Computed example of a mutant assay.
Amino acid sequence: MKAEMDVRAYNREAWDREVGRGNRWTVPVSPEVIAAARRGDWSVVLTPTKPVPRAWFGDLNGRDVLGLASAGGQQCPVLAAAGAHVTVFDNSPAQLRQDREVAEREGLELKLVEGDMKDLSAFADGSFDLIFHPCSNCFVDDVRPVWREAYRVLRPGGVLLSGLCNPVRYLFDPAQEEQGVMRLKYPMPYSDFTSLSDEERRRYTDKGEPLCVGHSLEDQLGGQLDAGFVLTHLFEDRYEEKDLLSTFLSTFMATRAVKGAPRS
């Protein structure tokens, strides 16, 4: 599972399974949520709990929006009901079906595209006004191509909204964390695919769960800057369910970045 293509293939199948299990990030929004969005009453999240400030979006009416690795029938249908022209791009066919379900149920127009978030060659340069990218790049082995491709497909002045995982989440022994103990175990760079022993990895693969990669802040924030983005806003967030590490610090963040001139 160390080969690059295996990362994508494994997590595609794993997220298809998560749909069948009813993972919280795979459950489509209700008709009531869509009706409220059509009235202008809506919110979406990039991170576990905090709604993204509406000011980060600007006027969505008639804007071309890419939901990048954002399928599951949750955020993208809401943005479409709020007036945007939305394309949903995701690695999981089952997750994309959740968006199709909501679109057919609610009479929404959503374009659905399956693919690797590191390769947006399905789209021409300057195709979108806004990209909505929740905490999902932890499921690819290299995040910098994601930022470069996002920059390419945005129009000048376009906005990238991203949810990010602080890599500190991956440094501790999960077995001891379940017992209420925080013990540093894994150094950076971290990947479930390469940092774990076969026995440790089976903790997830035996259940068919997705595997993660802990990207450095240099790659997540610096990578956006190196691609040419200008960071304008940032907030931090924590898990809403019981999470020992979240009792000590916020381990997620959301960023708003604008397409500027690429750095040399």
Rank of each mutant, 00 (worst) to 15 (best):
M1G: 02
M1F: 03
E4N: 03
E4L: 07
D6Y: 03
V7D: 01
V7E: 02
Y10S: 00
N11I: 11
N11R: 12
E13C: 06
A14T: 07
W15I: 04
R17I: 07
E18G: 08
E18P: 00
V27I: 13
P28V: 08
A36I: 07
A37H: 10
W42P: 01
V44L: 01
P51G: 03
P53Q: 02
P53M: 03
R54W: 02
W56T: 00
W56D: 00
R63Q: 06
D64W: 08
V65L: 15
S70K: 00
G73Q: 05
C76L: 04
P77G: 07
V78T: 13
V78S: 06
L79G: 09
A81F: 03
G83Q: 11
A84T: 10
V86Y: 11
V88A: 13
V88K: 11
N91S: 14
N91F: 11
P93Q: 06
P93W: 07
A94M: 05
Q95M: 15
R100M: 09
A103C: 11
G107W: 13
G107R: 07
L108C: 12
L110Y: 14
V113H: 07
K118M: 12
A122E: 13
D129P: 06
I131K: 09
H133G: 01
H133K: 05
P134K: 09
P134I: 11
S136T: 15
S136F: 12
N137P: 05
N137Q: 11
C138A: 15
V140P: 00
V140T: 14
V143N: 05
V143H: 03
P145T: 00
P145H: 03
W147C: 02
R148F: 02
R148Y: 05
R148L: 05
E149I: 02
Y151P: 01
R152K: 00
V153N: 10
L154M: 13
L154P: 08
R155A: 08
G157Y: 09
G157K: 08
L160S: 04
L160Y: 11
L160V: 09
G163K: 01
G163D: 02
L164C: 01
N166I: 03
N166M: 06
F172D: 12
A175M: 13
Q176P: 00
E177C: 13
V181G: 09
V181D: 12
Y186I: 08
Y186C: 05
P189V: 12
D192E: 10
T194C: 01
T194Q: 01
S195D: 00
D198A: 15
E200C: 06
E200S: 08
R202K: 13
R203D: 14
K207L: 13
E209S: 08
L211I: 13
L211M: 15
C212Q: 14
V213F: 07
L217C: 05
D219W: 03
Q220R: 07
G222W: 09
D226V: 10
D226L: 14
G228W: 13
G228D: 14
V230E: 14
V230K: 11
V230T: 12
E236C: 06
E236T: 04
D237V: 03
R238I: 04
R238L: 00
R238A: 09
Y239L: 07
E240C: 08
E241N: 11
K242I: 09
K242M: 10
K242L: 15
S246L: 10
L249F: 15
S250L: 05
T255R: 00
R256P: 03
A257D: 04
G260P: 04
R263K: 15
R263L: 15
